[in-house]
Write a protein that binds this DNA or RNA. Structure first.
Length: 594
DNA sequence: GCCGTTTTCGGCCCGACTGTTTTCAGTCG
């Protein structure tokens, strides 16, 4: 995957740019994997309904920010059962895994059908039934064995066609290339180009992103587009000839699935403009959001599908998303929060938050310059930020203990403040605030003295070393920094780099409580591989009334544009304008600090 | 196996596309 990221890495200014799938929340991932495999094993045995229950709970646990082991430690089996989708039976299985690292029922199922499920289902077009057939008829247990059999043309003995054999080999070939999910900020520019190309087709009335791209998820596995046209077949025919398209998986009159030349798939659905609202709903929400909506319709004896909300053959609503949601008795739900985590209930009660808008930000509070590891000067950053419409920026170069960046000491910080005063005179339309990204030392003290910090407009503090401390020590370390009256914001509070470095262990509930008590702001770092805080923590912060900032952590003028990814992250955490300090003018913002 | 404005039993989202068994099961999103 490294080569694919080369260009992006360059843009990010990172030297170490080998993206790997690192595992956060180890135990959640392990349990989710087992539950997912159990779903497939039960499906093979044609057990009804259980597979769906296991599938659902596996995805819930995989997305959980909190460790199930912690949940169990604090509240036992009962707390596990509070997790949506977990009942007595699955709760006990999770308990069993925490205690013994085994789940008996899973192991029994595996004994019966001893195949590498994970490896085989990854192959496009292969599901539970096909795995079972491959095993029973040909004794195939692994992807390697499947590839061998297909290469040697042995699949025919299992009743598979030549065509199927070819498709399997093609898909395995794809899997051999390194690929994975893209960071949102990495894929968005590519997606935008394709979107514009679709939009330019004369047959296309309008086109939108769908799926995880429209939900602005942290990472995106494939690109979903939905176009509105009265001539779907013509749109599909033109789309498959786009230069980005390398291969066609499937192509029908309304839908096509293709592989792009950047080693990822793209989906295009073309529907009539009459169905715009219902189609967008169907293709945007995650699976559980859609299931909940459709179940809701079902309860009213209606039916919700891609083409509208129906009472028998009567169309109740379809043209706009608002109309369909309204008919279902709820407010329009912003795409970013369509993931079945309470948004439907809130929409039914008219209690959805007024999410922070993409055009509501007034400033950027984390900006590095060429005084340390940034590429551009203070003046260049100020000019670029002003052109983006910012009313203010905060200059936050690194401090002395981060030696590799040439971090400033007290003397140099004072010098930089003088420099900012000089540069400010050249700008009337942007306020350049004085700050720093101060290092939090392992004991929780800072590497700049309080006297100097007091002179700065805003002080950000962050952990940049000793990531492997115990949770207890790391929590105490950051709490101590928060208790310093000069520290206004904790930058990138968990230190994670998506797909690259896991977050350090920290008790976020405790930190948020301390943030509330000390009036310390928590940052949402908008840099595409950080997005730190993550959405679940943002929701907790919002609930507690902890203030947040959205900053780019820009190290060059190009990075200033990353702000939208931080706003998306804030929206996914249900944050409103009142929660975000730099959605306010600089004087008000300063008053919101401790 | 889970869940509840049909609350402790009786339900469980919906449709497109593929390959083939040519009417439908399997897979996918």
């Amino acid at each position: 995957m490294a080569h694919r990221n080369a260009q992006f890495c360059l843009e990010l200014g990172q030297t170490d740019c080998v993206y790997k799938n690192k595992i956060n929340n180890m135990i959640n991932k392990e349990i989710a994997k087992i539950l997912h495999e159990m779903a497939i094993l039960l499906e093979m045995k044609e057990v009804s309904f259980k597979p769906r229950a296991y599938e659902k709970v596996a995805s819930v646990i995989e997305a959980l920010a909190e460790d199930v082991e912690e949940i169990y430690k604090h509240g036992g089996l009962k707390a596990l059962e509070d997790i949506p989708g977990v009942g007595r039976s699955i709760g006990e299985k999770i308990e069993e895994y925490i205690k013994t690292k085994h789940i008996k029922e899973y192991e029994n199922l595996k004994k019966e059908i001893p195949v590498d499920i994970e490896g085989l289902v990854a192959v496009e077009g292969i599901g539970p039934k096909t795995i079972l057939r491959l095993y029973k008829k040909l004794g195939i247990k692994t992807r390697n064995q499947l590839e061998e059999a297909a290469t040697e043309g042995r699949l025919a003995k299992g009743g598979f066609s030549k065509k199927t054999e070819e498709n399997i080999l093609k898909s395995i070939g794809f899997l051999k290339k390194e690929h994975g999910r893209y960071l949102l900020g990495e894929i968005m520019p590519v997606a935008q180009i394709i979107l514009e190309r679709i939009r330019s087709l004369p047959e296309v009335r309008s086109v939108e992103f769908a799926g995880s791209l429209r939900r602005m998820q942290e990472t995106v596995g494939d690109l979903d587009f939905i176009a509105f046209s009265d001539k779907p077949a013509e749109v599909i025919e033109k789309f498959i000839k786009f230069p980005e398209i390398q291969d066609i998986h499937s192509k029908g009159e309304h839908k096509t699935l293709v592989r792009l030349n950047i080693d990822t798939d793209a989906d295009l659905s073309v529907v009539s403009p009459e169905s715009l609202g219902s189609a967008l709903i169907a293709w945007t929400g995650d699976k559980q959001h859609n299931i909940t909506l459709r179940t809701l319709a079902e309860k009213k004896s209606w039916m919700l599908n891609d083409y509208g909300l129906w009472q028998g053959k009567t169309l109740l609503a379809s043209k706009t998303e608002e109309e369909v949601y309204k008919k279902l008795g709820m407010d329009w739900i912003p795409p970013e929060i369509r993931n079945n985590t309470g948004e439907i209930e809130a929409a039914l009660e008219g209690k959805l938050p007024h999410l922070i808008g993409y055009d509501e930000m007034k400033g950027d509070l984390q900006i590095q310059t060429n005084w340390t590891d940034g590429k551009n000067s203070i003046e260049e950053m100020a000019k670029a930020a002003s052109e983006l419409g910012h009313e203010y920026i905060l200059i936050t170069d690194h401090t002395k203990s981060l030696a590799m960046t040439g971090g400033s000491d007290e003397k140099r910080l004072v010098k930089q403040m003088d420099e900012i005063d000089k540069i400010q005179k050249k700008f009337s339309d942007i306020k350049i605030l004085k700050g720093a990204e101060v290092n939090i030392m392992p004991d929780g003290t800072l590497d700049i003295d309080d006297e100097t910090l007091a002179k700065l407009d805003v002080v950000g503090a962050a952990v940049h070393s000793r990531f492997n401390m115990s949770e207890k020590d790391m929590t105490a370390r950051i709490k101590r920094a928060m208790e310093n009256p000069n520290v206004d914001i904790i930058f990138h509070p968990t230190g994670r780099l998506i797909q690259k470095r896991e977050a350090y262990k920290v008790d976020m509930d405790e930190l948020l409580k301390t943030a509330k008590k000390t009036k310390t702001v928590m940052e949402i770092d908008a840099f595409p591989d950080r997005l730190d805080l993550k959405d679940e923590y943002i929701r907790k912060a919002v609930k507690l009334g902890v203030k947040l900032s959205i900053d780019t952590d820009a190290h060059s003028v190009a990075h200033l544009k990353f702000l939208r990814y931080g706003i998306a992250q804030a929206r996914r955490g249900w944050a409103e304008k009142k929660d975000i300090i730099n959605a306010h003018d600089w004087k008000t913002m300063l008053k919101m600090l401790k």
